[in-house]
């Protein structure tokens, strides 16, 4: 029974920093300068362009997640098969850059994209000169930023895998390919699910990367929300947009949870 008291700080924290802000968001969404109204909210909900940006954000977030998974899985797999000491060293190389501030790293990338890459490849214009170039640049930096979030849960799952299962699979006559697809991959699903959640959610809410890399000329949903708060003195539009994104993230997390049959991944719900 006593253990319950240890949960109190967490409950206070949740109320202060999760529940109260949520109440504010809902309050501001339906309240314009002290009067309750659905007008602003409705205007925002029926704004086709905002939905188009949400679609682009979903595409970018899915792209980032897919690339991170394709790159991250082999890395985690190789790491998990290495000697512990070597694996520790290599994964440190992976995570040490994360100790540096995220915005600083994004600024560094902006310099690479703006100056280093055009000079290296003798390009006459910078990479961000075209809309396609900007999309590629934003995707590149998002993948760079979020790849460790994919590798870490995958590595945890894969390194805890019972090696005797692999031996059993071999004993029963399965070759390496079959062992991987029939044994390793299904057993690593919890890691994949939490990796996807940990990349997809921050990727769909990203606004620093598109703002800095796209020179303010590339908007994802996070930027639309950012602008809504910065441009308008009342918070109604920004709050409505935040609620839409919130619902969206909630739905995608629920879908992901559905796949996580063991309910042991680091999913946020």
């Amino acid at each position: 029974m006593k253990r319950k008291y240890f949960a109190y700080p967490y409950i206070v924290w949740m109320i202060l920093f999760i529940v109260v802000p949520m109440i504010f968001i809902f309050y501001y969404a339906f309240n314009v300068n002290g009067t309750w109204t659905f007008r602003k909210c409705w205007e925002t909900l029926t704004d086709v362009q905002k939905w188009r940006v949400l679609l682009v954000s979903v595409e970018i977030a899915l792209g980032t997640t897919a690339i991170c998974l394709l790159l991250g899985y082999p890395i985690a797999y190789i790491l998990s098969n290495m000697k512990k000491s070597v694996a520790g060293f290599i994964s440190a190389l992976f995570f040490v850059p994360m100790w540096m501030n995220f915005v600083l790293r994004t600024y560094a990338w902006s310099a690479i994209i703006e100056y280093a890459i055009p000079d290296l490849f003798n390009m006459t214009r910078s990479m961000t000169a075209t809309s396609t170039g900007r999309t590629i640049a934003v995707l590149l930096v998002l993948v760079y930023d979020f790849l460790p979030f994919m590798v870490l849960p995958l590595y945890n799952t894969l390194s805890k895998l019972d090696k005797s299962l692999l031996e059993a699979s071999r004993d029963l006559g399965a070759n390496g390919k079959t062992t991987f697809f029939r044994v390793v991959l299904p057993l690593s699903i919890p890691g994949i699910v939490s990796g996807i959640t940990m990349v997809f959610v921050p990727a769909i809410t990203a606004f620093t990367v598109p703002a800095l890399i796209g020179n303010g000329n590339y908007s994802l949903y996070g930027n639309v929300i950012d602008d809504a708060f910065k441009i308008n003195p009342e918070y109604s539009i920004g709050s409505t947009l935040s609620i839409i994104l919130l619902v969206f993230v909630l739905i995608s997390t629920l879908i992901m949870n559905h796949f996580d049959t063991d309910k042991e991944g680091g999913s946020i719900l």
Binding site: K50, V53, R134, N217, S219, N223, V224, D227, I231
Partner: peptide, 15 residues
């Protein structure tokens, strides 16, 4: 100014 702001928000997200 709301008309300007709404227009600006459209311009900014027209990538």
């Amino acid at each position: 100014v709301e008309v300007f702001n709404a227009a600006w928000s459209k311009i900014k997200s027209s990538n």
